[in-house]
Design a protein around this nucleic acid. Structure first.
Length: 569
RNA sequence: CGGGGCAUGGCGCAGUCUGGUAGCGCAUCUGGUUUGGGACCAGAGGGUCGCAGGUUCAAAUCCUGCUGCCCCGACCA
């Protein structure tokens, strides 16, 4: 591809709408353009990168034995009514009517369609297991699309669905997909982690997210620095402290703390660390009563964990101030566990504090020197908090670090939720109908491109990993219009690299060197060859490596072999 | 959906408070000089100032309504 024939310009100014780096660079480098909120056109340069991602995914899906299909984006409402999601899905599901007033949806996902296909086509256990996938445009009417293509409303997803006669086969298929996913992201040279995830409302036995690590990521994940353990923050287990609680050394006392309601205020006023305080949260129980949840002052409640406790309302709901007053005799800010009559559940860490500070259950007062067992009964222990940096890893090896990630893939075992709703059955060996087990495996293809940039850039622009680069090599000419020798040499080089099967972008514009170098860095093509009169005289070319910034003179003969030795794929 | 903000040429912005008929940088086009890190000179084109009403002799500017977009929050197989 000759840049002189490429009509789309790069841009110096950062468009004001772009907040994250990948979005800024994608606009500036001319990979995408916005059409409406969360809806983007992929320009040629961006599309080539997108195709690279798609093709790696296809190759690995095929290798894992999956079969590509293409399902419709527009789906009849009846299928969604049959699965129950017509009611459940909410406004994120884009609904529309055709001219006959029949209801349709623009598919945000394809469980219904694929399950419908499976129940029509799959009749016998002998046809199982089967795995169908597609690379296709989805639409989800996100509340707040943002970060460009990272969280768009329309996006391209690879979604795969596997069908099995029993749970064992599903587990096996799931494991295969897990392997395939790891291979894909490794081939893309992304720094990623498979992360244990909450199965959420969908249920099922196992679920993992594939997270590309990046500071701008929307998800917090806990990773061990000692092994490959990684879990979504919602799910990461906080182990009970290894050291036993210290013996009481202070007497319980009531102190006046007028106006101090938060842990930070109380700790500052009393000159203690937040870790010496215990905070008490009153939430609704599932029986009309309230429950007190206790956390160490420096810890945060993990709502997913709390919600799973028996006796707690789901979804988790903080009790109203009136109910708090009725249950404790005090207002939020001055509540403590001493003397409470409601059920009390304490985080392991909260139970490990001696001589702690807590609310006194009366206005403008707190208690100090409080001790479990002596001043109040030992409470029920549970894991209630978010893990924090430095917590021991649940895997038993290493400490946890909290990092941020971009969820690019999600695999999970659906079980029979959809196959039951849509009656997708096959006959087993005994000729009896059995409901199929399903697995579901997604990758946000468009999001992967943004994530790759998020992880691979510098202040000058994109640094494509070799396998994702729109082009492998960029040729830049110096003095293009004036030097016939340069032009001829570069044309010949362009032709020969092309013949060698290398994907080449050729900057043959009549532009100043600075313009070309700056664009080269913005576009991020990994390998660059500079053709100029200087080198031609000596029979050399200048080779530049985008990532390392390296710069070397190489013999013009044997460029192809030289480049191949530098490709990292 | 709640809170905040923005809307002026392709992009980034000024002008709005204090009404007087639109400007800067980048980009684009023409000619010339330049050419190994975003050149310079001269010239040119391009905007019903988001839309609709209203006030006024006069509205980008004041008032009302609407629309779109951005940010924060709630939400997110």
């Amino acid at each position: 591809m000759r840049l002189s024939l490429y009509p789309i310009n790069t841009v110096k100014e950062t468009p004001s709408e772009a907040e994250v780096i990948s979005h800024q660079l994608m606009l500036r480098a001319g990979l995408i353009r916005r059409l409406a909120a969360g809806i983007y056109t992929w320009l040629p340069m961006g599309l080539r990168a997108l195709r690279k991602v798609e093709n790696i995914i296809r190759e690995e899906m095929d290798r894992a034995g999956a079969l590509e299909v293409l399902m419709p984006a527009v789906q009849p409402a009846e299928l969604w009514q049959e699965s129950g999601r017509w009611e459940q899905y909410g406004p994120e599901l884009l609904r529309l009517k055709d001219r006959h007033d029949r209801s349709f949806v623009i598919g945000p996902t394809h469980e219904e369609v694929i399950t419908d296909l499976a129940r029509r086509e799959l009749k016998s256990y002998k046809q199982l297991p089967a795995n169908f996938y597609q690379v296709q445009t989805k639409f989800r009417d996100e509340i707040r699309p943002r970060f460009g293509v990272m969280r768009g409303r329309e996006f391209i997803m690879k979604d795969a669905y596997s069908f099995h006669a029993d749970q064992d086969s599903l587990s096996e298929g799931y494991a295969q997909m897990r392997t395939a996913y790891s291979r894909m992201f490794e081939r893309m040279q992304l720094n990623f982690r498979p992360v244990r995830a909450d199965t959420g409302s969908i249920g099922g036995n196992a679920s993992e997210e594939f997270q590309v690590l990046a500071d701008s990521g929307e998800d917090a994940i806990a990773v061990s620095d000692g092994d490959d353990f990684a879990a979504n923050l919602e799910l990461a287990v906080a182990l009970p402290p290894a050291t036993p609680r210290a013996a009481p050394s202070a007497e319980q006392a009531t102190v006046a703390t007028p106006g101090a309601r938060t842990i930070a205020e109380v700790a500052a006023l009393l000159q203690v660390s937040p870790a010496q305080c215990i905070k008490t949260l009153i939430v609704d129980g599932d029986d009309g009563e309230v429950v007190a949840l206790l956390l160490r002052g420096d810890h945060e409640l993990n709502t997913v964990k709390a919600q799973k406790l028996p006796g707690i309302a789901n979804p988790l709901q903080l009790a109203s101030p009136e109910r708090v007053l009725a249950a404790t005799g005090a207002q939020p800010g001055y509540i403590g566990p001493v003397g409470l009559t409601c059920r009390i559940v304490a985080d392991h860490a909260a139970l490990a504090v001696a001589d702690f500070v807590c609310g006194a259950n009366q206005r403008d007062a707190h208690l100090t020197g409080v001790n479990w067992g002596r001043d109040l009964p030992e409470a029920t222990a549970a894991d209630l908090r978010n893990v924090v940096d430095g917590d021991p890893s649940p895997s038993g090896v290493g400490q946890l670090r909290i990092v941020r990630g971009i969820e690019v893939g999600h695999i999970f075992q659906l079980g029979r939720k959809y196959s039951q709703a849509l009656k997708a059955e096959v006959l087993d060996q005994g000729g009896k109908p059995v409901t199929m087990f399903m697995g579901c495996y997604g990758i946000g293809v468009t999001r992967v491109v943004a994530a790759a940039i998020e992880q691979n850039h510098d202040e000058r622009g994109i640094i494509w990993p070799d396998p994702l680069a729109p082009y492998q090599v960029l040729i830049i000419t110096m003095n293009h219009s004036r030097s016939e020798a340069v032009r001829n040499a570069a044309d010949a080089l362009y032709a020969s690299l092309g013949e060698a099967g290398i994907e080449v972008l050729y900057d043959d514009r009549d532009a100043r060197p600075g313009v070309k170098f700056t664009d080269a860095e913005l576009l991020g093509i990994p390998h660059c060859l500079v053709v100029g009169d200087r080198g031609l005289a000596a029979g050399t070319l200048e080779y530049r490596h985008r990532r390392s910034g390296g710069n070397e003179e190489i013999p013009a003969d044997g460029v192809v072999d030289f480049l191949r030795s530098r490709f990292t794929r």
